[in-house]
C-alpha cells in the first residue's frame, strides 16, 4: 500500500515516512502544496495524509481539485487547528478522516488501516480467503489457523491482491502500490515475491493471468 504524505514541516514529514515504511507502506513525501497536488494526481496512492497549512496551494484547495478531477483516493487530513470549522470544512471538501496535531502514531496507523479497509469494501480488519486469514490490524497471516511469518514486501503484495480480490492486478499496478519513487526495481522482483507467497501459503491462492498479471479469486 502506497501513501503520500503532504506536510511542510520536514522533521515531521520525514519521521512519518520512516515510521510508515517500518509498517510496510511505500511512502512519498511532498513538502509543498503544489508538489503534493502534482504527486497525488499522477500516482495511484492508497491513502493521502494531507496537512492543511501548506506553502503554495493549501490543503483545502488540494482536496477540492483532487475531487474535481474524480481522484477518489482516501484523504486523511492532518490539522494543527482544533476548531470545529476546519474539521467540518475538510470533511465537506472530500476528506475521509482527520487527525489533530499532535497525534499518536498508533492512532494514525489505525486510521490509515481503516481508510484502506473502507476503500476496498471490507468492514472487518480480518479478511479470509480459502484457508488463509489475514489480520490487517496486527499485520499477521494465518494458514489453517497457524501463523505464517511474512516479510514486509510479501505482506504488502498479499494485502494489495486480497483487498482487490476478484480483480486482475498488473505487475505495474502492484509496483506502483508497493514501492515509493526513490526505488527503481525490475518488474520480475514482483514475480519472485509472488513465488515466495505461493510457497509459504497456498499454491493456488494467487493465480497468474498470462500477459496481464495476478488475481486472487473471491470465495464462492
Amino acid at each position: 500500500m502506497r501513501i503520500l504524505v503532504v506536510e511542510d514541516d520536514e522533521i515531521l514529514a520525514n519521521m512519518l515516512k520512516e515510521g510508515l515504511i517500518e509498517e510496510g507502506y511505500a511512502v512519498d513525501v511532498a513538502y509543498s502544496g503544489d508538489d503534493g497536488f502534482y504527486m497525488a494526481e499522477s500516482m495511484p496512492y492508497d491513502v493521502i495524509i494531507l496537512d492543511l497549512m501548506l506553502p503554495e496551494m493549501d490543503g483545502f484547495t488540494i482536496l477540492e481539485k483532487l475531487r474535481e478531477k474524480n481522484i477518489e483516493t482516501p484523504v486523511l487530513v492532518l490539522t494543527a487547528k482544533d476548531g470545529i470549522d476546519d474539521k467540518v470544512k475538510g470533511l465537506d471538501k472530500g476528506a475521509d478522516d482527520y487527525i489533530t496535531k499532535p497525534f499518536e502514531f498508533s492512532e494514525l496507523l489505525a486510521r490509515i488501516r481503516a481508510l484502506i479497509r473502507r476503500a476496498s469494501g471490507n468492514r472487518s480488519p480480518i479478511i479470509k480467503v480459502k484457508n488463509i486469514e489475514i489480520n490487517t490490524a496486527s499485520r499477521e497471516v494465518y494458514k489453517d489457523g497457524k501463523r505464517i511469518p511474512l516479510s514486509s514486501k510479501e505482506y504488502a503484495i498479499l494485502l494489495y491482491l486480497v483487498t482487490n480480490r476478484g480483480k486482475v492486478v498488473s505487475r505495474e499496478e502492484l509496483m506502483e502500490h508497493i514501492y515509493d519513487w526513490e526505488k527503481s526495481i525490475e518488474s520480475n522482483v514482483i514475480d519472485v515475491y509472488v513465488n515466495f507467497l505461493r510457497k509459504k501459503l497456498n499454491k493456488d491462492l494467487i493465480e497468474t493471468v498470462r500477459g496481464v498479471g495476478y488475481i486472487i479469486r473471491k470465495d464462492e
Binding site: I11, L12, M15, K101, F103, F105
Partner: peptide, 16 residues
C-alpha cells in the same frame, strides 16, 4: 498551529 507542528514532530520521533 505553529506550536503543534514541532510538538507533533517531537512526539512522533519519540514514539517511533
Amino acid at each position: 498551529h505553529e506550536l503543534r507542528t514541532p510538538i507533533s514532530g517531537i512526539k512522533l520521533i519519540t514514539e517511533i
